[in-house]
Design a protein around this nucleic acid. Structure first.
Length: 306
DNA sequence: AATGAAGTCAACCGCGATGGT
DNA sequence: GACCATCGCGGTTGACTTCAT
């Protein structure tokens, strides 16, 4: 037995919205607000549309602060980085991009960014350094071997081409041992790099912080690329770490406690912890691990990514 | 100019989450 | 706790546009 439809599909108009319908919805929302009930809204607004359709139209198109197209390189990086970190959680990703909607970001990823990454993706050359990871009890990793070459935008994005498990919030990379880790783990900078970049991102900027626009804050935190060519390579490395912090929340509390298995509270003390990676065990529950140093924890496993 | 392929994106669908009763 | 209505999300579809031949 199927779920009852939200409205009588035979009686409501479907398909593209006319300018008249747009104006009806816009003017109704302007004068009455949404009123907390999208299902009842169409009738009140004089629209022969399903409530869900009205909601979608408003959120994705009619809202006054919506931006369409014209994605900047920074937005590309944010999308790729967040996709690497949390997977296809478009609403979360879109929330970091003022004026962008989840639908828009999703379309942009599916039609442009993903393809770009696939085209650019090159198989790893045989002589790759092995990135040894210390696996803590929580199943997380920290890079302790010499850092890999700086990733390019393409390589960073390309890793996202691997399908994400539906329940895990990232694009996993399978290690030699069969465990999975996020791309951020693979390309975490060396301890000194991480520290320097993270410190730079959080504390070394002397200019006053901009106003609370999420994107503004990100711009503030991410060191601006010096050239177009190195833009991804220089700031992309740190982006995952920055975003993971970002996701934990400025006060240390994780905005979505389900993400990363609710490990946010462990990460409150930034001064002594380095957020190193997000690591997935065969258990699909993703977990965050904050390492206070880079010494292999007792009983930890060591991986080589091949 | 015609036509088919590929790309784009608004809109739809169905499901899980959430909140009220 | 069960039930119901609604919301919000991610995946998918299909109409339209652009490109290549």
């Amino acid at each position: 037995m199927g779920r009852a439809p939200c409205c009588d599909k035979a009686r409501v108009k479907r398909g593209p919205w006319s300018p008249e319908e747009d104006e009806l919805l816009r003017s109704y929302v302007r004068s009455h607000g949404i009123g907390g009930n999208w299902i009842a809204l169409p009738q009140k607004a004089g629209l022969n549309r399903c409530g869900k359709s009205c909601r979608l139209r408003w959120l994705n198109y009619l809202r006054p602060d919506i931006k369409h197209g014209g994605y900047t390189e920074l937005e590309d990086r944010i999308i790729c980085s967040l996709y690497n970190s949390i997977g296809s959680r478009w609403s979360i990703i879109a929330s970091k991009l003022p004026g962008r909607t989840d639908n828009d970001v999703k379309n942009y990823w599916n039609t442009k960014l993903k393809k770009k990454a696939m085209v650019m993706h090159q198989p790893q050359p045989p002589k790759q350094p092995h990135y040894h990871h210390h696996l803590g009890a929580g199943g997380c990793v920290s890079v302790v071997s010499p850092p890999p070459p700086p990733p390019t935008a393409q390589s960073q994005c390309a890793s996202s081409m691997k399908p994400s498990p539906a329940s895990a919030a990232s694009s996993p990379v399978t290690t030699a041992s069969g465990d999975k880790c996020s791309f951020g783990a693979m390309y975490s900078p060396s301890p000194s790099q991480t520290q320097a970049t993270t410190l730079s991102a959080y504390t070394s900027v002397s200019a006053p912080a901009p106003q609370p626009s999420p994107l503004g804050e990100l711009i503030y935190r991410v060191p601006p690329p010096t050239t177009t060519a190195d833009s991804w390579a220089t700031s992309g490395v740190a982006l995952d770490d920055i975003f993971l912090h970002e996701l934990i929340g400025s006060g240390g509390e994780f905005p979505n406690s389900n993400l990363f298995g609710g490990f946010g509270p462990l990460l409150q003390d930034r001064s002594s912890m380095e957020l190193s990676a997000c690591y997935y065990l065969p258990n699909p529950q993703p977990e965050m691990w904050a390492a206070s140093d880079h010494v292999k924890p007792a009983g930890a496993l060591c991986h080589s990514l091949t």
